[in-house]
Nucleic acid binder design. Structure first.
Lengths: 244, 244
DNA sequence: CGGTCGAACTAACCTAGATCAACGCCCGCC
DNA sequence: GGCGGGCGTTGATCTAGGTTAGTTCGACCG
């Protein structure tokens, strides 16, 4: 069980928030189990599940979703490589939502028993993981603000800005372009819009030269304008150090 | 510094989720500092603050809010007595949002230094507090679902159901009635609606015999219908035991 | 090589909710 | 005892986004 390269994104991510000792790094290295592949559209977790482990996203993209009784689907967060998609299931045993693979994903489990043991033996690491779940909450709050106060174009702009910064920070985006396997239907489920209207907004932003989103490839020709349209302020993502 | 009655709602709340030892109870009892009063409309925390303590709501109601550049205000959670309103500030130092008193409030601080010490010495308690922040995230997710998928009337119905169950669980509501100092403007800021439309929806539900909301006093004549209108399922609130 | 399926795109029409503008009520204040 | 400011209420009008019902195009497949 030597440390696999799987874990390095997690170490990088936590170390960006606060310094990690060598010992802490080696504890993290022992946390993840064997990798597993999930095809596009597959479910990593289903609502109501009581998993015995939390799932770490090694590569690919997935999203948390909830279904409504009348057939609606709302995506409540998009996860990028380096994220724990359901770390909170350590505390809240039964999943209140599912997680769907947007494209092909590689995931690795971290057993709850090990995580619980970690909270006993390594409180500083535990606080860093706690912070991960707290940042999820901050992302949710920000999405609530955009849903409640901004129109479709602003919401879309905000989402693209958030994804770009998070991917950039994970080393998966640069030069204002990135690729992500989300269809216009998926976007509608994130933004609370119909696919038809997503398309209209997308065409509109394209014509204004603010955004290209074609075949999973996103290009941002005018970052500043997109930021101001989406009223995007990245503070809530806590991508810089924030000692805990 | 003997234990004040201030702390008992917190002990009750945590004990509802998992058994607490006498020693854990006494640690909690030593956590809260002296009470402070905040008048209606006052700010418990402002965006950008870096508080050295987390604020516990002893009595009254408050709400987390974010402001947008064009003058909008979005309330992202309503807090009821027994809630920590900014427990996450222990991890995420700088506040990404503010907290406003909806009516007169009594609050008590828990020093971050003490909380951090608690995570070292009492991991089980730490996990219970972690769960508190995780439940906040679940509430945010549920609100995202209602914002994205439900119309004004359903959103309002859902909010009232959530408030009733949370207040009931805190011993502050029974017989399908409770009082809460929220104006129609506040409701609009929660639901992402204009006060005008909140009023129309309220009048409508009143005429249908589903809901009375007058002068801060809420009455639910037909709980089942309100639940089904709001598609309310209380699981996400974790009001029952959920061993951690 | 035609057939099917998923995804992007388009157009015509419709409604939930916003906007704007009053008006009444109550309560605290000068 | 008048008066100004929240708060609730109402009506007329407007618009962002939903609904319905397509077309197009490329990828895969038998």
């Amino acid at each position: 069980m030597s440390s696999s390269p799987t874990i390095t994104p997690l170490i990088h991510k936590l170390a960006r928030r606060d310094a990690l000792s060598d010992e802490e790094r080696s504890v993290l290295a022992g946390l993840l189990g064997p990798e597993r592949h999930v095809p596009a559209g597959g479910l990593l977790v289903e609502p109501g599940d009581r998993p015995g482990f939390s799932t770490f996203l090694v590569s690919g993209f997935c999203a948390r979703y909830s279904l409504t009784v009348d057939g609606g689907r709302q995506l409540t967060e998009v996860n990028v490589p380096g994220d724990f998609v359901d770390l909170h299931s350590l505390l809240m045993r039964q999943m209140d939502h599912g997680v769907v693979a947007l494209g092909d994903c590689v995931i690795a489990p971290a057993a709850h028993a090990d995580l619980r043991r970690l909270t006993e033996s390594h409180p500083h690491l535990a606080r860093l993981l706690w912070l991960e779940t707290v940042v999820d909450g901050a992302i949710h709050r920000q999405w609530l603000v955009t849903m409640g106060q901004q129109n479709a174009a602003s919401r879309l702009a905000h989402l693209v800005c958030e994804l770009y910064r998070r991917l950039e920070s994970a080393g998966l985006a640069r030069d204002y372009r990135f690729s992500i396997p989300m269809t216009q239907v998926d976007l509608g489920d994130v933004l609370g819009l119909t696919p038809v209207h997503v398309n209209r907004v997308l065409m509109d932003l394209r014509q204004q030269g603010l955004l290209e989103w074609r075949a999973g490839l996103v290009t941002i020709p005018d970052w500043d304008s997109l930021v101001s349209l989406g009223q995007f302020d990245p503070t809530y993502l806590r991508l810089q150090s924030d000692v805990v």
